[in-house]
Amino acid sequence: MTARRIALTVNGARHEAETPVRQHLADFLRGTLGLTGTHLGCEHGVCGACTVLLDGRAVRACLILAVQAEGRSVTTVEGLAPDNGPLHPLQAAFCANHGLQCGFCTPGMLTTLAEFLKDSPDPTEEEVRVAISGNLCRCTGYDSIVAATMEAARALREARA
């Protein structure tokens, strides 16, 4: 009763592992699977650092139990770009615009924005700000992140055109 074996897809690969039922998804990804790119900044659902995509939707991994991800597909920051391949346009734009300093909030920003740009390929700056209003960053003051997102949106649109 205290642990369960679960199977799920993470970054395109199938994983099977045992997890305590009280373990949240972020600890499962970090501890059980060793995918430490997903960070924990508050564990009460405010900071957004642990954001991952669950079946394509941005969710806070500290507010979902690992057992709830059974059979689902999870994408973490490690899955945004192929291991040794080119960066996702958001990642490239973050680097080019100094969108990260300490890098702790960055994985959650990237996953949140990856979903957002799929839904809103041509956003305004204001829409970008609203999209990341559930992600705290203490280093950048956000402007460089907004600029990076606008640049990435352009790049994604051009790639599609």
């Binding site: 939707r57 941005a58 969710v59 806070r60 559930g134």
Partner: peptide, 9 residues
């Protein structure tokens, strides 16, 4: 209501 990530859930 909350943010994109919380409304998704």
């Amino acid at each position: 209501v909350g943010h994109r990530q919380t409304r998704n859930r």
